[in-house]
Design a protein around this nucleic acid. Sequence first.
DNA 1: CAATAGATCATCT
DNA 2: GATGATCTATTGC
Length: 210
Amino acid sequence: MSFGELAIASDGEMALREIERRSYILPRSFYERPTVEVARDILGKILVHGRTAGRIVEAEAYLGEQDRAAHAWHGLTPRTRVLYGPPGHAYVYFIYGMYECLNFVAEPEGVPGCVLIRALEPLAGLDLMRRRRPKARSVHELASGPGKLTQAMGITRRLNGADLTRGPLLVRALRNEPSFELGVGPRIGVRHCADWPLRFYIRGHPCVSR
DNA sequence: CAATAGATCATCT
DNA sequence: GATGATCTATTGC
């Protein structure tokens, strides 16, 4: 069964069960590595929350105190606490008075690297995603942006600090991952370090933002 | 199409 | 008090 068929057979429970049967939960060791490696390797992995699931097709690395575009540039504050915690946890923050953004904490404990999840290909629970994002005109627009994907999957700050290896927010890897062409470029929407090539995406994928 | 404005609030100076 | 890891609607070509 291809991803296309999985998405089209959008009966939430069916698609979800099929994904779980063919994948395993990413272990914490995956995240306990250099942030750039985690950002690149997270492409193609599957995010699961409730009845919804999506394949990660775009992500960005935020390095830490030497990266002016990163929240951790200011050092350890109440907000950046989870960035300094153990890897494999979610960092969810609120921005522009309206949107939530989802990150995965990388690097060993004490080192504040993280990966911003920017876009997903919807795989399960499409009906629920459409209800949460009635403005989306096509399946590709359901989760093709950092604010869109959190809306579509019902992710809020309540999940800040959640363990990605235990749920309710999970990241899974298919045992037979389809290959793809890797795209690299500068991060989107940042003023500082605007030329650093820390954005990774699946080249040619319709769900990539912009 | 591209450019722009508005919504709206947690966080840090 | 300003800013921002965004999205949408609207305007103008």
